[in-house]
Design a protein around this nucleic acid. Sequence first.
DNA 1: CATGAATGAGCATTCATTCAT
DNA 2: TATGAATGAATGCTCATTCAT
Lengths: 223, 223, 223, 223
Amino acid sequence: MPQKRRAPVRQSTAERIRHVSRARREKAKEELSRNILQAAGALFLKHGYEGISMRQIAEKIGYSATTIYRHYENKDDLLFAIVYEGFVKFNQALGKASKVSGDPLSRLKSVCAAYVMFGLKNPIYYQLMFMQRFDFLFEKRSAQQAPMIASFEVMQQIVTEAIQTGRLKRGDPETTSTVLWAVGHGITSLAIADPKRFSKRRLEEIMQVTMQMILSGLVDARR
Amino acid sequence: MPQKRRAPVRQSTAERIRHVSRARREKAKEELSRNILQAAGALFLKHGYEGISMRQIAEKIGYSATTIYRHYENKDDLLFAIVYEGFVKFNQALGKASKVSGDPLSRLKSVCAAYVMFGLKNPIYYQLMFMQRFDFLFEKRSAQQAPMIASFEVMQQIVTEAIQTGRLKRGDPETTSTVLWAVGHGITSLAIADPKRFSKRRLEEIMQVTMQMILSGLVDARR
Amino acid sequence: MPQKRRAPVRQSTAERIRHVSRARREKAKEELSRNILQAAGALFLKHGYEGISMRQIAEKIGYSATTIYRHYENKDDLLFAIVYEGFVKFNQALGKASKVSGDPLSRLKSVCAAYVMFGLKNPIYYQLMFMQRFDFLFEKRSAQQAPMIASFEVMQQIVTEAIQTGRLKRGDPETTSTVLWAVGHGITSLAIADPKRFSKRRLEEIMQVTMQMILSGLVDARR
Amino acid sequence: MPQKRRAPVRQSTAERIRHVSRARREKAKEELSRNILQAAGALFLKHGYEGISMRQIAEKIGYSATTIYRHYENKDDLLFAIVYEGFVKFNQALGKASKVSGDPLSRLKSVCAAYVMFGLKNPIYYQLMFMQRFDFLFEKRSAQQAPMIASFEVMQQIVTEAIQTGRLKRGDPETTSTVLWAVGHGITSLAIADPKRFSKRRLEEIMQVTMQMILSGLVDARR
DNA sequence: CATGAATGAGCATTCATTCAT
DNA sequence: TATGAATGAATGCTCATTCAT
């Protein structure tokens, strides 16, 4: 990141007094960055990206609007940071779930559950990531698509394995994993969009019915 | 300074033909109305409701922004018109599909297919209807929620029937129909959001796998 | 098309001096506030409240329209500030005049003269306060009506005293003070509206004739 | 008034059928003109000139906005027509009152009463004429200021007479008549602006006190 | 590092006015 | 004569962003 303005050679007295350890300062900065991200995320979610102004974000965190620009280049950048972080977290969650011990099928179940769980626990991220169209964000940032792609591949990988080991019916792994993805996405997005309909109990029922449907429907019964 | 506003420069008669017979004029008006609706829909979809201005819509249809106001009271009204029409069409599609002859199960399949088909054929409507949050639109127009509610009920009705006639496994009809809804929504919304991944062939495969999954997974095999 | 908004072109430092010491800065801010108030007042007066736009005010003071909003919440607020300040000044003027030494009659004369003088010295304030209907301003700001009410009461108070001490003819104090008010308002508003007719000399004559008329006409001659 | 578009040589059938007597047609036109004037006056008064749109006027009379333009050239012209008519009526009222039989003093009283009465009976006209600033209206229409000027002169004429015949104290007639004018205007405008304070009874009291004040104060008692 | 001041561009909406019918 | 359609300009206001301190 090209530092645009070099630091002055001589620190002012005031600066020296305020001077804390370098680590401490950086930590504070990061904390603020994260703060901004969270506030912005929550607001974007509630009122849409275009519906929220930098000033509103600033007000929520108790800083001036200008301060945000010290942490993020502009509004787009801020949004991207949220979505990007979302994908990193998402990727971690799926990755962790996929490493559960057991046969491919239980790992598949684990990943599916993790998918839905992520969405329900991070509705802000999920909506920003999957329920709105921010293609434009990645247009000029293709280099940073890695975690997004990786996430997609985790599931496909497991499905492939499950098919190869004969636990799932024979078929194109991409097709099958897309179906699973779609089921997960359908439940998650509906649950987020209309929480009233998705009480905890109802959701549990739904998940159970769904899992059973998947198992009865996709598993190769001959084994 | 009550300065006189100058009269707008008119386009020559040849450029645009208007003011013909009364019937013709009304037809032209309706056509323009529809035109606005379509343009607005496409734009809202791509950039979000808040991301699109009346001016942008106007420019797309080649009229001044003011003209839109002759057809729709305001921006909200315009969006509502789109969503409302979407639900009317949606309702018709589901209704028609549900009246197919045969046992509840084949009607269920028919409705599911109709659901996905509607989304794929009317991606603009679908996204505005289901992939964004426009609760506020109906807040003051509860009287016009009919087609929306009716749509939701079609599927639930069929599921209930299928359970009662023993074709589907015993269970709460609402849970079961929600699962089906979620599956349909998952496929549809993914297909719309990422068309590259959903070629016609791939989609057919997906639908087939899905249908089979549903049937194997939810149907009461004892019958 | 979330197109980036370009940064505004700034004026060179030399052109306008800002950002000095904190105290200096606050002083500058107040000065600008006052500047806006004056410009707005003059314009509202000449073309009516509805006839003037924020942009026109801004242009008059050489700032952008946005800047006004840093000082006043909105157009109503701006108008209110003017009228309110007017009443504060008016109240002070009447109050001071009423405290002149002497019998009630000379204090009455003093207040009448102060009334007219205020209007002539502050024609902008006067017209906005008394020659246009801005009831709506106070509808939601009843708490701030104090100076206005106080002003009205000063004259009535003196008249009451003058009647009680027998210097004015017996009669309803409210009626009498309203007559005096009307006379003062008549002269003041005509003088403001048609300054050509009200040269300094002519005005002096008018005031003299009027005062004499009041004294001959309202004073109880038996004393 | 230069007719911009000449009438077609051949009347269409429809036109011939609709054809009524010329007189009847003109009468209808005038009636509509008057209708527009009244509606516009009432609205201008209530919401200010700038606060009212042509469409609002049109809606009030149940015609399209375009129709107004057939009767008045533009909005300014419409306002002017109102004010002009007001001055014509005002002039008539004062003129009639000044022709009452009797000595100059009773004629003076008659004119003063007529002044106030006009304002109270035609508050719309009065406010538009005297309580708002429409200088711009007359800037390019100086030829039509006649009734306005005439009105001003009626009172001055009587005062001059009264002084010459020794009924009023010696003094500059212009000064004296201006004082009277101011008193009349003061009462009238206050009564219009704040009707709550000016009940019929209160107003009568005020008028009586005022008249007495004028007589005691301005009349030459030596006669 | 954080901020106050400032601004050009943009937004939804309304307006006065014109034109052809 | 009256009107529907259309429009450029304007309005109050908000926004993202910059700059110098």
